[in-house]
Every structure is written in structure tokens, then in C-alpha cells.
Design a protein around this nucleic acid. Structure first.
Lengths: 219, 219
DNA sequence: TGCGCTCCGTTGGGATACCAAACTTGTCGT
DNA sequence: ACGACAAGTTTGGTATCCCAACGGAGCGCA
């Protein structure tokens, strides 16, 4: 059965996406088991794509696997969130500073477009759309930074980011912060950015901490 | 034949290490094909561990794989090296600054030990030993930084690092730079570090650029 | 000569069956 | 209550088989 997945998409990619979404959306709780054979049965695929998917998610840092036992959805501690925040601050600062120094006018237009879509969605209460646009805001910024390694780096961390910080409550506040960042990038005001970014991230940090507390288990 | 690998080590890990070393040591040239079946035959394993290994190396950024074709050893451009250098500067600065702020006296002792071994090896012309000690210097620093995410980040980049920057010619100069860093970390002199690190990395950068030129092919 | 197209061998992605090693877990004895 | 042991579970790996997609060589056409 199944046989061919859908439209040329690799099964392993499909499975990865499904599991990743399950984790990010909380359908698979931190600490819950990821049993290859069970997941394979659920999704009507063999163990192979599931294995690939789990490896990928381990690489993305949201799954923990020890040899010869089941993998589990990673349980983050307050400490992890704090550590992650520190690293994130350095990376995001780098991105926006580079973006400020190197952007083209066309790039700024795209960034502004993403912001405006985010703002509109946030205003109208379209939660999901606002989050997607906010994500694009960051993606475009990484692109404007003109450093592909930075893009790869983000790629490794983006799942964790979405998982831990995807719950930013106050969408309007986030959009407003993005507006401020946007203007600073457009004005190539590096000094302002070095001050703004840490504050911007701090608010998401607080949301992540709260989220962890409410769902508290782990260590 | 083969059957059991060695002492509990997973085959996929063993294969990964072999391929990684092949790449880092130049036994597999940039652009050369990594054909699952061939490698499996060479190493007397099935295709699965080879697949895992290739995936891992893709994650480490030294192999490029597109669906349904052979993977190739990544070809780095001057641009890639420069981009990587920029990112590395930010990360390493973060590491040493955190290490300076948070280290214990015990940690400094270990760092000093690594430096002294590096210096001794460099003085006596023991190239390999000097490089290993230099690597440990960085590892210990990352540990002292007290941020596990930073450790994970380094883990993703360390292979690339070893590959691109592993050819630092002047071992004595590198050891001397590490001494300066060591003293700054010990003295918790963050400002000095923010000035030192970029200079430290620039010398390795130059070596990497030279290396790429001499082995020039690629784009 | 130079360009595009087709065809075929190659190659990875996946399915299936099976086995060994090792991790979990529950039980039993002290 | 606690530890050793046994049984069940789960992954890691091997061996095959099949298929779709890719790469390249060769062909034909302009």
C-alpha cells in the first residue's frame, strides 16, 4: 500500500515534516517515545524513512536518541532555554547587522513587505499568518545578510527556535519590534541594532520560559 | 567477513569517522563522488551505515547530496571560506568571552595544560600533537563557556573547521596566540578578547585561503 | 560544427524479512 | 526495600529486490 507518496516528495522528508510538526505543535510531548516500528505503521511506510526522519530531528536538536533504544522528544530545561537565548542573541545580532550593512533597496522592500503582512495579520488576529510572516521576516533578513553559512546555521536551529519560541503571545508587540528593526536595518544603523536585538529577543525568551513552566516536567 | 565491528562501536559511527577522515585528510577530493554501494563494498558493510554516514556528513556541511544521485564531497569557494570566517568570529568570540566571565580556577588549569602541551609539541615540531592540543584548547574553552547550546553549535561546525582551517602552517604562532587568549581569559579581560579573537582567526583564515588557491578547482 | 533529444546504465529511496546485540522492565528472591 | 536476573522490546545491521529519477553517452538534425 501507499507505494508512491505524493508528488515526487521523498517519504523521508514527508515523515520528517510530520514528526517535526507533531513535536512543534505539542502533539508529541517532550519525553514521549518515538518508536520506529510504531511510527512506520502509523504512517504506512517502512522503518527506513522513519529512521532518516528521527536522525534528522536529532540533528535539529528536538529529539534525543541513544543507541539501541527508542528516541524521545527532547525535554528542555530552563537552563537550555537560557543557553539557547544567549547563542541566538549573538547569531541574530550578526544577521541583522550584516543585513544592515549589505542590503539592497530591493531587499528592504521585501523585508518591509513581510513586516506589513505580519502587522496586518497580527492586527486582524490571524495568528498563524502572523507567525508565518514573522518567520519570513527573519528568513529574508538572513538572506540579506549575504552569508550562506549564517543561513545554514539558522537552518540547524530553526526547528528548536520554532518549538521553544513559537509561542510568542503578543503578536502585535512582536510586529512592532520588527518594525523598529526594519527601520534600523533600512537606515543601516548598526549601533541601534546592537541595542535593539537583545531587547527584542528578551520578550520571546520570557514567553518560552513561561511556556516551559506551565508544561513543567523534565529535570 | 567483518560481521561485528569492534568494541560496541556502531558501524554507522565507524563509517562516518572513516569517511570524515578521508575528506579532512584530502584522501577524498572536493567534488569526488560518494557512491553508497561502492563505499559499502570497500568497507564491507551494507548500504545502511553508509547512508547514515553520508547524512551525518551532510549535516556537518562537508558533503552535498541531492535526491537520487550520488553525493559529492563539498567544494568550498573563497566566498564560503569568508562567510564561514565571519560566523566563526562571532561564535568564537562568544565562547571566549563567556569562558572569561564564567571559568573556574580548575578550568583555567585545564586550559593552561592544553596550551602547554600545544606549545611543547609545536616547539618540538610534533605537528599532529600540536594540532590535537590546539583542538583541545578550543574544546575546553567551549566547556568553560558553560553553554551547552554553544557546544552543540560547535559540534555542527567543527568538521568544517578542521577541514578548512586544519592546515594552519605556523604552529608556534598559533600557540603564541593561544597563550595570549589564555591570559586574557584567566584575567577575565573581556575587552581584550573582543580585540584578540578577530586577529587570531584572521591568520587561520589566510591559511585557508591559500590552501584553497593551491588546490584550486571548483567554481 | 554545434545543439537538442532520446535512451540506457547507474544510483539512491524504499520495502521486506531476518538476526544479533543491548536496553527496559517486571519479577522474584533475599 | 533493594538488587539480581530473565523475558520482552527496540534498534542497528545484513541481504535482496524493485522502482523512479538522474547523468551521460550517442544519435540525429539543423
Amino acid at each position: 500500500m501507499a507505494g508512491v507518496g505524493a508528488a515526487g516528495e521523498l517519504e523521508s522528508v514527508r515523515v520528517t515534516r510530520i514528526l517535526r510538526d507533531d513535536i512543534i505543535l505539542g502533539r508529541r510531548a517532550p519525553g514521549s517515545r518515538l518508536v520506529e516500528r510504531d511510527i512506520a505503521a502509523e504512517l504506512n511506510v517502512s522503518r527506513l524513512p522513519v529512521r532518516e526522519a528521527i536522525r534528522t530531528l536529532v540533528g535539529e536538536g528536538v529529539v534525543v536518541a541513544r543507541p539501541r533504544t527508542w528516541a524521545v522528544v527532547r525535554e528542555f530545561t530552563h537552563r537550555d532555554i537560557q543557553d539557547f537565548g544567549e547563542v541566538r542573541e549573538a547569531i541574530e545580532t550578526l544577521i541583522f547587522v550584516f543585513a544592515a550593512e549589505r542590503h539592497s533597496s530591493d531587499g528592504i522592500a521585501r523585508l518591509r513587505d513581510a513586516y506589513e503582512r505580519e502587522h496586518a495579520a497580527a492586527t486582524e488576529g490571524r495568528t498563524e499568518a502572523a507567525r508565518i510572516a514573522a518567520g519570513e521576516f527573519h528568513e529574508i533578513s538572513a538572506e540579506l545578510a549575504g552569508n550562506e553559512m549564517l543561513g545554514e546555521l539558522i537552518g540547524v536551529f530553526v526547528t528548536r527556535l520554532r518549538w521553544l519560541f513559537g509561542q510568542h503571545d503578543d503578536l502585535l508587540a512582536m510586529a512592532e519590534e520588527h518594525r523598529i528593526i526594519l527601520e534600523a536595518v533600512a537606515a543601516r544603523d548598526v549601533d541601534a541594532l546592537r541595542e535593539i536585538i537583545p531587547r527584542h529577543l528578551a520578550s520571546g525568551q520570557a514567553a518560552a520560559e513561561r511556556r516551559l513552566s506551565s508544561a513543567s516536567r523534565s529535570i
